[in-house]
Amino acid sequence: MLKVNHLYKSYETGDKSYDVLRDVCFEVKEGEFVAVMGPSGSGKTTLLNCISCFIPYNKGEITLRDVRLSSLDEKDIAKVRNEKLGFVFQDFMLLDGLTVLENVCVPKVIRREAYGQMEKKAKALMNMFGIWDIAGKYPPEISGGQKQRTAVARALMNDPLLILADEPTGNLDSRASEAVIGAFLEAQKTLNTTTFMVTHDSFSASWCDRVIIMRDGRVYTELINRGSRKIFLEELLNVLKVLNGGE
């Protein structure tokens, strides 16, 4: 459903230009749970931002269900973002002026849904992530992990087809991490949701069907989960060891 073809992206700083993504190619199938791993600075967040159409890219193509994203106009992109995609940002992007509950509701507010339904759904998600008891607090008053769970709940509000998550478990203890991964798996099972997740945590990644490993702006390798989580985790750790060891 998601295809990335020969994607190039560079940042201009002053008079220098840094190539951050160089010829990235991969595909994510409908209902697949894919993780992206790689050293810090290898371009994972940049890749995610390109897929979300948050930043422009230099060359290449991204298609979502055979629709070329670059061909959509703004209005359509907004609709896609709201209805088809769920986002978890690396730095959460919560609105400081709204309570946790309200923040979770925002995607549905944008969709102009009825109030009752909104709250019911929000309550279910927030209970699942254990943040219902802080529903009335404001983001500056809660912890990093709580913020992250709020962001994940928000991403799941509209039952998205594709979840784009940047380190959704980065700030969480293992129980909370499991809840987040569990939620993604649950969505995969019941709604056939596709998840595309950046993570540094091999343990979280081992739940995935496939892991794409990036290095220096390129796809370094891909690992496929063939059924056994344990074996997959070991494979992952091995590759990462090689990668971090500098090979």
Partner: peptide, 14 residues
């Protein structure tokens, strides 16, 4: 910032 977040979550610019 508020505008940016709402845009990212799919609010229409118009």
């Amino acid at each position: 910032r508020e505008i940016g977040i709402l845009l990212a979550l799919g609010a229409e610019r118009g």
